[in-house]
Design a protein around this nucleic acid. Sequence first.
DNA 1: TAAATATATTTAAATATATTTATATAATAT
DNA 2: ATATTATATAAATATATTTAAATATATTTA
Lengths: 107, 107
Amino acid sequence: MQDLEELTGLLKAIADKRRLQIIDLLSYGKMCVCNVTEQLGLSQPNASHHLKILKNAGLIISTKRGRWVDYELNQEKLEHLQERLGEVISESNEEVDFIKINCDKKS
Amino acid sequence: MQDLEELTGLLKAIADKRRLQIIDLLSYGKMCVCNVTEQLGLSQPNASHHLKILKNAGLIISTKRGRWVDYELNQEKLEHLQERLGEVISESNEEVDFIKINCDKKS
DNA sequence: TAAATATATTTAAATATATTTATATAATAT
DNA sequence: ATATTATATAAATATATTTAAATATATTTA
């Protein structure tokens, strides 16, 4: 089997309505935090919090511009996430010996 | 923007190490609960619990076979999940008017 | 029918996560 | 310098999730 720690972390980062909204919003382009709070109706600290989680996961990138901080999607990382998910999900043709038709103690 | 409720639900269902392990395991083929507990070293109630969450999300399918219950991946639903995620993630070329270069109260 | 087995459900405890409120920092403008 | 603004961090609280333990249900076998 596989190392699933990293994928779990990435999925946890996006498995939240607010954070998916942020990703969806950022897919229209780079924008500052205030734009995110405004568009999604979030309080500034709440937006900051969710942005931080996405940033820690490496899924978004921040750049400072004077008083503002712009955020944008990290497409590379997002594609990586999709690929890894695909790998785990995809059916295997490999012959394995650990699948038992039953686990009856008597057999 | 989009309806992200459904996608959030699907992502929450898989954003867990144990449940990713289960999906990874089931990608080798249909198997009974006891096989899952055995392979992943989970207690039976814990395995049952995680399987239920995946099943409620529609990502796996169960079939009763005498005393046993077999589980298998629902490939259709998993592909749907991947597609929806791709839609949300993918960059948009659409011109939008809500992105402001700054949100200064004065401007 | 009674005993054994596979699985599910319920409850409680432990842990993690989200939201809010308050405060801090850093850049800009006056 | 001082005030204002954008963002971040911290603390407090509320909520959700995970795990574990106990119990229930259903099927099979003796």
